[in-house]
Design a protein around this nucleic acid. Structure first.
Lengths: 251, 251
DNA sequence: CGGGACATTGAAACGTCTCAAACGATGTGG
DNA sequence: CCACATCGTTTGAGACGTTTCAATGTCCCG
C-alpha cells in the first residue's frame, strides 16, 4: 500500500481514482504467436477481465500529466483504457527521447530490478488501469492462460520496438516521417486516406530522433510534392499513395 | 514434424543434431521484476531445465550459418548455449540492419502471425537449443513458473531494445562506438579494462546504424586521443576511463 | 603462399543540426 | 470576452558530421 503511494508520488495530476470491482472494459490487445484468424487481436476472455478487475484500479488523468518517472520504485503495471500516453527517456543532456506512443489496449510499466526503466506521461486526458505487480504475479500462478496473454503482449511490444529502430535508422527525415504516418495509419482506423496525428510536432520529432525543424521541413516537402496534404496540425491526408508507399519502402 | 523441417529449410549448415533428453546445461538468463539479490540473474530450477530438456533439441552450427530468415514459418524458439549469433533485418535496399548480438543464455525466435519477424545467423561456431513453440506453450499451461521466467526474459529483451534505440539515436559516431563498447563490457566479464569484440567491424557498423568507414574513423579517433587502445581487431583496452565514461554519458 | 574479404584512410557531396527570427496557436488573467 | 504572454510551429542561412566513392593496406582462410 505504501509502495502504491510511492509509485504515484510525482503525479498530483490525478483527477479521480476508484477501484473497478467490475471487469475491465475493453482490453489488453494481445496477438498469439500462431496465425489465428488473420490480423484479429485476441482479447481477454470475460472471465479474465473479471479477474483483472478485482485487482485493477481505474485512474483518470488530465493531459500532460506524469504517471511515473524513470528509476522510481515500481509497484504496478498499467493498461491504457482511453486517451494517449507517451513513454520516454530523459537523457543527461536534457534531451527527451520518446520511445513509444501508447493507445487504448496498450500496456506499460517496464521494470528492471524493481524500478521503472523510463518515464511515462499522458498527452491527452487519459484513463488507465493500474495493476499491482505482486497481485498480478500471484494471479499468473493460478491462471497460466492469462499469463500467456501478457507474454504475447510483451512479445508484440518487442516487435514494435524493433520496428521503431528500423525507422530511426533511416537518415532522411522525409522517409522517417512517412514511415511514422504509415504506422499511425495501421494503428488507428485504416478507413479513408485520413490519418489522425494526435501528438505534437515536437513529440513526433523526439520519437523520430530528429529536430523539430527537420520534421517541419519534411512535412513541408511532402506538401510541396503533393504527396500528403495537412488540413491542420493533427490531420494528414495522403494524396499520392504510390509515391507515399514508394518512399516508405525505399530504404 | 514437418514444420520443424520447414523452419530449418535454409540451413544446410547443421553440423549435428540430437535430442538432449537430459536437462538443458546452462540456462536462460532471466531477471525477475522484483529486485532480488542485486544483479544476479535467476536461472531456471533444475526441474525446469529437465522439463525443457524433454522437448528441446540441441543443434550445432558452424560460423556464418543461417538459422532462419524473416517471414519463414515459425515453429520453434531458440536459446543460445555457446557461441555468438546476430539478429538482423534485411531492408529492401539490400542493407542489413543488425538488431542484436546474442550471447549464451539469450533467447531468440520473435514471432508474429506464425512467422519470424527477422533473420538470425551465427557469427561463430554455435550450439543452440531448439524448442518447439506448441510444446512450449503446452508446457506453459502446466508450469506457470516456467512461463514467468520466459516473461521475465522477453521483458528484459524489450529493455535491451530500448537501450539500443538510445544508442542509435546519437548522431556522433564516437559516442555510439563508446556506448557499444560499454555494452560489451557489461555483457561479458567486467574484469580488467579489456573488452572483447567478437564481431566484425562491419557488423558493429550495421548494429550502430553507421557506415563501416564511420566506425573505423571513430575508433581511430579514440586511439589518437589515447582514450582506448586496440591491440588487435577484437580487443579493446580502455586507457582513460574518466574521458571514456564522459563520452558515454554526454548525450 | 595466394586470394578474397575485411579494415583503414582520403576527398567531395549531401543532409541534418544549430542558431535566429517570424508566425501561429493556446490558455490564462484582467 | 478580449488581450496578452507563452509555447509550439515554420522558414532561412551557415556549420558540422556522416555518407559515398575510390584506393590502399591488412587480416584470415583455404
Amino acid at each position: 500500500m505504501q509502495m502504491l503511494k510511492n509509485a504515484m508520488a510525482d503525479s498530483k495530476n490525478v483527477d479521480q481514482r476508484r477501484a473497478t470491482g467490475g471487469p475491465l472494459q475493453p482490453l489488453l490487445r494481445a496477438r498469439p504467436f500462431t496465425p489465428g484468424d488473420g490480423n484479429m487481436v485476441q482479447l481477454l476472455t470475460d472471465q479474465q477481465q473479471a479477474e483483472l478487475g478485482t485487482i485493477a484500479t481505474e485512474v483518470r488523468l488530465r493531459a500532460r500529466a506524469s504517471i511515473y518517472t524513470a528509476d522510481s520504485v515500481a509497484a504496478s503495471i498499467y493498461i491504457v483504457q482511453t486517451g494517449l500516453v507517451k513513454v520516454s527517456q530523459h537523457l543527461p543532456s536534457g534531451r527527451e527521447q520518446v520511445l513509444a506512443f501508447l493507445f487504448p489496449g496498450d500496456m506499460f510499466g517496464l521494470v528492471e530490478n524493481g524500478r521503472y526503466l523510463n518515464s511515462v506521461a499522458t498527452l491527452t486526458q487519459t484513463t488507465i488501469y493500474r495493476i499491482p505487480i505482486d497481485a498480478l504475479t500471484e494471479m499468473f500462478r493460478r491462471d497460466g492462460d492469462l499469463e500467456l496473454q501478457f507474454l504475447y503482449k510483451v512479445t508484440h511490444e518487442l516487435g514494435e520496438a524493433q520496428r521503431r529502430e528500423t525507422i530511426v535508422t533511416r537518415r532522411d527525415a522525409v522517409g522517417r516521417v512517412v514511415m511514422f504516418l504509415q504506422m499511425l495509419e495501421r494503428r488507428n482506423g485504416n478507413n479513408s486516406a485520413c490519418i489522425e496525428i494526435p501528438m505534437s510536432r515536437t513529440d513526433v520529432a523526439r520519437y523520430l530522433g530528429l529536430s523539430a525543424e527537420a520534421v517541419s521541413r519534411a512535412i513541408t516537402q511532402l506538401r510541396r510534392d503533393e504527396i500528403v496534404s495537412f488540413p491542420n496540425l493533427h490531420v494528414a491526408r495522403i494524396l499520392n499513395r504510390p509515391r507515399f508507399d514508394q518512399i516508405a519502402v525505399a530504404m
